[in-house]
Simulated scan of single mutants.
Amino acid sequence: MLALLGAGSLLLPACTGPAGSPPPQEAILTLEVVGSGKVTAGSRECQGGSTCTWTFPKGTSLSLDPLPEAGFFFAGWQGACSGFAECRLTLEENLSAKATFSPITGDFQLGQVSSPVVVPAGGQVELALALELTGDLSAPPGAYRVDLTGRLVGTGVDQVRYRFLPERSQADRLVLELTGPDPAEVWTLFSAPARVSVRLGHLERTEDFHLAVAPCLAGCGR
C-alpha cells in the first residue's frame, strides 16, 4: 500500500509492520481404518471403513488404541505405526497410519501345559503354548494377547517375570519367555498355581498349571 504525504511529496510505502505472523505450527495425522472396529485417541475416534484427518500442534504426543468389534480381531498397523498393540506417536511432522481389523473365522483351544514349569533363579526358560485351531481361523501370533498370573508371577525380586515373544511364535504355537527371580532370594524349590490366558478378539482361553522356581546351584554369584 502507498501513502500520500502531501502536495509535491513522493508516494511512499505505508508502514504496515511485519509481513504477518507465521501460521501456527501444526501437524496432520491421516488415519485409515479397515474392517469392523475403531481407533481412539483420547476423545477422538475413527470408525472402521473411514479415513480420518486430525490436526494437532506440532510436538503433540498421543496414543492410538485399536478396538475391534465382536467377531473381529486387530490384525495390525501399517505406516507410522507397527505391531499389534497401542501405538504411541509424537507428531513432529505429518504422518499417516493404517489399522486393519479382520474377522474371526474359527476358534481355538489351548493345549495342556505340563506341570510343573520350573524356572531356575537367575535363569530363563521358554514356555510354548500349543494352539488347537478349528474352522478357518488364521491370525498372526502378534494378534494374540497373552497374560500369565499367579503367586509367583510379578516384578518382585522373588518372582518370575514374563514376556510374550511373537517373533518366536508360530500360527499354532505361542512362546513366553520366563525369567527367574534373584538367586539370593531362592534357597529351595517352591511351586504355586499359575494361569495363562490367551485372547484373540472376543475369544479367551485359559489353562491352569503349576509354576515352580528352583535355586541356582552354581555360577549365580552367590
Rank of each mutant, 00 (worst) to 15 (best):
P13Y: 12
A14N: 04
A14I: 13
A14W: 13
P18M: 11
P18D: 14
Q25L: 12
A27S: 13
A27E: 11
A27F: 11
A27W: 00
L31Q: 02
V33N: 06
V34S: 06
S36E: 11
S36N: 13
G37Y: 12
K38P: 00
V39D: 08
V39S: 09
T40H: 01
C46V: 04
Q47E: 05
G48T: 10
G49L: 13
S50G: 00
T51P: 13
T60R: 07
T60M: 02
S61T: 14
S61M: 12
S63P: 01
L64P: 01
L64I: 08
D65H: 13
D65C: 09
A70I: 12
G71T: 13
G71V: 15
W77R: 06
W77D: 03
Q78L: 09
Q78S: 12
A85H: 05
E86P: 00
R88S: 14
L91Q: 00
E92S: 07
E93M: 03
N94M: 00
N94P: 03
A99T: 00
P103T: 01
I104W: 00
T105Y: 04
F108C: 02
F108V: 05
Q112M: 04
Q112Y: 01
V113R: 12
S114G: 10
G123L: 03
G123Y: 01
Q124H: 12
Q124P: 01
E126G: 10
L129D: 01
L131S: 12
E132W: 08
L133F: 14
G135C: 14
G135P: 11
L137D: 07
A139W: 00
P141Q: 01
G142L: 07
A143H: 02
